[in-house]
Amino acid sequence: MGKYITKRVLVTIPVLLGIILLIFYMLNVVPGDPVTVMMKEHLKEDVIENLRRTMHLDDPFFLRYLRYVWDALRGDLGVSWKLNRSVTALIATAFPYTLRLAVAAALFSWIMGIPVGILSAVKKNSLMDHLSMGLSLFGVSMPVFWVALILQNTFKGVLPVSGANSWQCYILPTVVLGWSSAGRIARLTRSNLLEVMRNDYIRTARSKGLSPLRVISRHALKNALIPVITVMAIQISSLLSGAVITESVFAIPGVGSLAVSAINNRDMPLLQGTVIFTAVLIIAGNLVADVLYSVIDPRIRVE
């Protein structure tokens, strides 16, 4: 068990370095010198030269990369060109908003998705099954930004539609962000449960005289929900993608909004920091899901 976790953690290190390398490379070959972006064009030649040197812009690429990794390990992601503040500090301020939104949306999607999936599987091919499965595919197919706009305009005056000053502000963004995840989870729960219900041990359970409800709750559900945990990991990724859009529509000052503003202002260190930060979150999420999986599934626990 401990060995498994250690191995799993070690595997992520090259991936982590790869992530930073990829982003660092892409953002540092970008046309447009950072110094000119920062200072516009009103600077004298020698000042620019000086600045370039202090920013190590003339060093070889690989050296700059290593320096960035080293700084990142110590929690220093550079300074925002536009806001002139530490990127780490900016992310630290923004992250709680994103975290609150993502957690709320995840909870929303489970509370909606899992029961609907179970009901659909139990009443397979019923009207309710077709309806909820159609609806969930509908949910998955709706563009997040569009749903956001529509809800925002529908609930204008009823609920707060922008900012993050009170818990009510999170209601609409949570629904918007959780909606498509809920659809995905409902579909997955349904198909897993149906697959599990075909297993021999379900027939054994029925042959013992257990009621259908008991067969599902005692024998099928645990098996069916184990793979759903994997989806929680994938969900983190799609929630963070969705958060970029949701936050920008509902003006929530989270990490997503930070990334969008970084792009619009061509603020390279900020963009770099936010993207790497989210990637690390996703990797950590995958790690937690894998470990959770091995804790819950006795077949893996022993190995």
Binding site: V15, I19, I23, M26, L27, V29, V30, S237, S238, L240, S241, V244, I245, A259, I263, R266, L271, T274, V275, T278, A279, I282, I283, N286
Partner: peptide, 14 residues
Amino acid sequence: AFPSLLLAMVVMYT
């Protein structure tokens, strides 16, 4: 490991 949207946005930025 990236959120798809952010990675695509970085590519567009570059």
